[in-house]
Nucleic acid binder design. Structure first.
Length: 1040
RNA sequence: GGGCGGUUAGCUCAGCGGUAGAGCACUACGUUGACAUCGUAGUGGCCACUGGUUCGAUCCCAGUACCGCCCA
């Protein structure tokens, strides 16, 4: 059955993928040799809401190459697939879906119902990317597909897994070790999703902003001499001021200022350090005063050199405030609107003023310094109002604006507020796209500084290798400057934090065991009821299960006065419910005096863990930890992680830290970092630019193999691939090329079993006698060695280039052509055997990069016991290279090319067959001519070589060891022929002069490598010979 | 501002101590036992610039310019 003219990728890929899947070809350990070492790769889990983009295509192609290569070599191979649950993204997708379906918004659902809705969505749509990866040919063990939320409470059938157990266990473990803590810190707050996010989820973008300049009057009308000097210390400005000038891009935050800071070296403000100044906003009769302090943070050269400190709304200010004991006044709510809760402005301002005078005012969370008329406003509206008010009051710094009236020529001078248009860096949520607000909230943190060192050491001492090495610097830099990691998220979709809180009854305000008798009387109980509960502090415990946490709370309350110490621990929804339940319980007791009714209510933290916290456990979590599974023992630590550089700190560093902290070992031996796929012009692909290339479109248009080959050939270490459809098309042509070479072989009976005997499957390594066959076997061996070397060094592009050059440049361009005449002669059988073997070896070597077309060719060219996915990777090497055959065939190729070139340049019609006259030849040349006459005649389109002399009407061809004359008719263009020869001779002479110069340099001969000198001498000798031949031909031409 | 890359043929990129390669594009010819998604032959490069190391630099080092990315 003849093969089709081209490979039908669309039809074949689906069929082949189904066959792989049906035979469990990708299962862990498939095709492993007995006792083989393990090779394991974890997929960087794509987002469950994700769909395949070109970055995934590159990432997974490279993983697949490594995995298929190892599997064929008989390693015990696992490629572990899965997805992460992507807290914010998934919640967003489902909220959008509900809105589209006209269903209520999330806040109108209860938590369980909403997460059920997410699970339903996941069952319907969560497998998208898996199916897309299969189209790419990814040979993951899909039966082991993992999910970072598997096994969570509420997970439906089919999502049993135990990832949840691993996550909770690690949290509790780190908590018990004191590596996780809760604290009120400034975090990045996403006002759209109303959750904290980590600094890595923030994207800083430069936007157009404004810088306002305002005057903060000194308290009590104090004045000072403000002196500015130039670089030489000469005074450029001296004036008496009663204010300090402040620049800000966010005037609305002035309401929360706690101080004004100047640099200790700044002489301009030295006279007023320690004094108080007034914030020029808020009701005039309740203006707040704040201290002028010194700190290293302000840059004296920037703006006025004085910085307002709003510790609750800016990360730099937060640092200053912490260093100097400045209170942090929160101004905004979770939606980034001006607060409406807490104390009145008057009460708040009074407290803040006391604080400014140095009094300890304690917790200021109820202090709301937003004036009543601004409460509830959006932050931008508040900004506008603040600016207007200050300007109206004349406290904006102004510049003199001069205007000439065009008609009268009259000059108008006007003071206008100084507002600079300025590019400012603004933080945006990478998911929500809204401006991130630094927000003071209670969050959970991993104390990364305490677990970071093992992760640094592991890379320093080489237990884990990062390639290309330049990325190690990024890794070290990030880890050496690591910040605490905010791991709590105010979401519903995720692993709920396993921490429960209870009211602290040990020392609630207003409660006292007055008699000190260790028991509560009615009076004391009422005091507790009336005053103690609402303001009580909290205690918390972490444990995997409520039962364990209840145990901890029981220990906790054991020290309480009786009868409270025997309260039953019960779980309630939240703090308010706990207060109610405890109050009811106490009230009941005062009536019944029955202590068995007493309860101690606790409630669970409503927040969930950052998705990356669970993704950080991907290496052990996917292998069954905390169970001690055979997979964990066999495949951990994993061999290689393939990932993009954008994720080094997001994920790689965290996995390193967490695995080392939890199981004491590195998660992977090698991290290979690839680039970011860009468009043809090198621009980052983005939806807004509209230059996104969809890998599935490319697969539809050209097939998966060409896309894979293209991405591979561009995966040069440390470089970003730039991809366009042109490249994929070129490699589709490569697929067609090898397809047609196979088709040619098939048409010539290469795959037919020799008469009377069954074909060995796969083809045995042949032992041919003909030079052509011996030569190509050496080329196959070279290709195999080069591919293994390249893949072993993660030089994917080199592997692709080697294979392209070998298959197209050697097999198709030369071997197939050489073989044509051999099919008729004495070497027909061995040529068929050799060609069959060559094609089998070619598709074997190509299979990791182009699995579909190679599998198809494999199936079409024999009765196969095993699919190519489980084919044997070859091990032969240099022993197959026959130096004589190599030399001879390269000489033949050189001759054919020289003849073709001469013919083309002299305008000989391509179809014309010329006589080939040997005017001079040494023994080697004569032998090569004799052995390969048929090939030369055919490919150079000449008659069998005969000895003779150059004559009028011949053109000359010179090769090492021989000269030829080719009669091209009665008249030749002598000028053209001599120009052609002269050009070649001149180039030769130039090159020879260079080489001679080098060899003539005594220092070169002294210091260069002997091999290099020998090579140079040989090259020069060849060149000299060629020049001599060309010159001889020129002389003859001139003589005729 | 700090860090990391890049600058090689018209374009996209390899190469990285011994005077340059591929694909695409371009030119001419061509249906020669598979392939026009092809073949043959060509055109095209002071390897950004300036110094240095070296017998020798596209390659190593330093600096300059421009471009990109990351972090402030």
């Amino acid at each position: 059955m003849p093969m089709d003219k081209t490979f039908d990728a669309a039809a074949a890929e689906a069929r082949i993928a189904a066959a792989w899947e049906a035979s469990d070809a990708f299962a862990a350990g498939a095709n492993a040799k007995p006792g083989a070492p393990a090779f394991s790769v974890l997929i960087p889990p794509p987002n469950v809401t994700g769909s395949l983009h070109i970055g995934h295509a590159l990432n997974n192609t490279l993983q697949d190459i490594l995995v298929r290569w190892h599997r064929m070599r008989g390693f015990d191979t696992l490629w572990q697939p899965g997805q992460d649950h992507a807290g914010i993204a998934t919640q967003m997708v489902v909220e959008r879906k509900l809105a589209a379906e006209g269903k209520p918004a999330r806040k109108d659902w209860d938590r369980k119902a909403f997460t059920d809705e997410i699970w339903t969505w996941k069952a319907e749509s969560g497998g998208t990317i898996t199916e897309q990866l299969k189209r790419l040919g990814a040979s993951c063990d899909w039966s082991r597909n993992a999910f970072t939320m598997s096994g969570a409470p509420g997970a439906p059938a089919g999502e049993e897994g135990n990832f949840h157990d691993a996550v909770i266990r690690v949290f509790v473990d780190l908590y018990d070790k004191g590596l996780i803590y809760r604290g009120k810190r400034l975090v990045n707050w996403d006002p759209r999703f109303e959750t904290a996010i980590s600094d890595l989820e923030v994207e800083n973008r430069e936007v157009d902003g404004h810088m306002w300049h305002f005057k903060y009057p000194l308290a009590g009308g104090a004045t000072y001499e403000y002196v500015e000097r130039d670089a030489d210390g000469r005074i450029t400005l001296r004036e008496t001021r009663d204010y300090i000038s402040i620049a800000t891009t966010r005037p609305e935050t002035m309401l929360g200022d706690g101080a004004v800071a100047v640099h200790p070296s700044d002489a301009r403000y030295a006279p007023i350090v320690g004094q108080l100044c007034e914030i020029p906003v808020g009701p005039c009769d309740q203006r707040r005063l704040i201290p002028i302090i010194i700190d290293e943070y302000p840059d004296p050269g920037f703006g006025s050199g004085a910085v307002k400190i709003t510790g609750a709304h800016d990360f730099n200010d937060y640092g200053v405030a912490m260093r100097n004991g400045i209170p942090l006044y929160a101004l905004m709510d979770g939606r980034a609107r001006m607060r409406e809760d807490g104390l009145s402005y008057a009460e708040s301002a009074a407290i803040a003023t006391r604080a400014a005078r140095g009094e300890d005012v304690g917790d200021v969370s109820a202090v709301n310094l937003v004036p009543e008329d601004l409460r509830g406003l959006d932050r931008l509206d508040a900004r506008r109002r603040v600016v207007e008010a200050i300007t109206a009051e004349g406290l904006a710094v102004t510049v003199l604006h001069r205007e000439i009236e065009p008609e009268t020529g009259a000059e108008h001078l006007e003071n206008r507020p100084l507002v600079e248009a300025k590019k400012i860096m603004q933080p945006f949520g990478d998911r929500s796209g809204v401006v991130i607000e630094p927000m003071l909230t209670d969050q959970w943190f991993v104390d990364t500084a305490r677990i970071v060192q093992p992760a640094i050491d592991a890379v320093r001492d080489g237990r884990t290798r990062i390639l290309p090495e330049q990325h190690e610097k990024v890794y070290f830099h990030w880890l050496e400057n690591i910040e605490p990691w905010t791991i709590s998220r105010q979401l519903w979709w995720g692993h709920q934090i396993p921490v429960w809180y209870g009211l602290d009854l040990h020392s609630p305000p207003g409660f006292a065991d007055d008699e000190g008798d260790g028991a509560l009387d009615a009076v004391e109980l009422f005091a507790l009821l009336a005053e103690g509960l609402v303001d009580a502090g909290e205690r918390h415990h972490a444990a995997a299960h409520f039962a364990d946490v209840a145990e901890a709370f029981r220990d906790d309350i054991a020290g309480l006065p009786q009868p409270l110490e025997i309260s039953r621990i019960v779980e309630v929804a939240d703090r308010a419910a706990a207060v109610d339940a405890l109050a009811a319980s106490l009230a009941d007791y005062t009536l019944t005096q029955d202590p068995t009714h007493l309860v101690y209510p606790v409630w669970r933290d409503p927040d969930v863990l950052d998705t990356w916290f669970s993704s950080g456990l991907w290496p052990i979590g996917t292998l069954g930890w905390p169970e001690d599974t055979p997979e964990l023992r066999k495949y951990f630590p994993t061999s290689t992680l393939v990932t993009g550089f954008d994720i080094i700190f997001f994920w790689v560093a965290r996995m390193m830290m967490m695995q080392l902290a939890v199981v004491g070992d590195v998660p992977f031996r090698t991290v290979y970092v690839h680039g970011l796929v860009r468009d043809e012009k090198g621009a980052k692909m983005s939806k807004s630019k509209g230059n996104v290339i969809d890998p599935l479109d490319l697969i539809d248009a050209y097939g998966a193999d060409p896309l894979r080959f293209t991405l591979t050939s561009m995966a040069a270490m440390g470089r970003d691939p730039k991809l366009g459809p042109k490249h994929v098309e070129a490699n589709r042509n490569f697929v067609t090329k090898i397809w047609n070479a196979t088709r040619f072989a098939e048409m010539n009976g290469v795959f037919a079993a020799p008469a009377g005997q069954p074909a060995a499957q796969p083809a045995a390594q042949p032992a041919p006698t003909h030079t052509v066959n011996r030569w190509i076997m050496g080329e196959v061996a070279r290709a195999r060695l080069a591919v293994d070397e390249a893949l072993g060094a993660y030089r994917f592009n080199e592997a692709a280039a080697v294979l392209y050059g070998f298959v197209w440049g050697k097999v198709c361009d030369w071997y197939v052509e050489f073989a044509k005449p051999l099919f008729d002669g004495a070497h027909a059988d061995e040529t068929r055997q050799t060609m069959r073997w060559v094609i089998e070896q070619s598709v074997t070597l190509l299979h990791p990069i182009m699995p579909f077309v190679t599998e198809e060719i494999w199936a079409l060219t024999g009765q196969r016991a095993r699919m190519l996915v489980h084919g044997d990777w070859p091990a032969y090497g240099a022993e197959l290279i026959d130096a004589d055959a190599d030399r001879q065939m390269n000489w033949v190729i050189g001759l054919i090319e020289a003849v073709r070139s001469a013919r083309a340049q002299m305008g000989v019609p391509a179809g014309a067959r010329l006589d080939l006259i040997v005017t001079e030849a040494d023994d080697a040349a004569r032998a090569a001519l004799a052995a390969n006459g048929a090939l030369i005649e055919r490919l150079a389109r000449v008659t069998p070589p005969v000895s003779g002399a150059a004559a009028a009407g011949t053109i000359a061809v010179a090769v090492p060891g021989a000269s030829f004359a080719l009669p091209i008719g009665d008249v030749i263009d002598v000028a053209a022929e001599s120009a052609r020869l002269k050009k070649a001779a001149d180039k030769g002479a130039r090159d020879a002069a260079g080489l001679r110069g080098r060899l003539g340099n005594a220092r070169f001969v002294e210091s260069a490598d002997p091999e290099v000198i020998e090579d140079t001498r040989a090259k020069l000798a060849d060149l000299d010979e060629e020049i001599a031949r060309l010159n001889a031909a020129l002389a003859q031409l001139a003589a005729m």
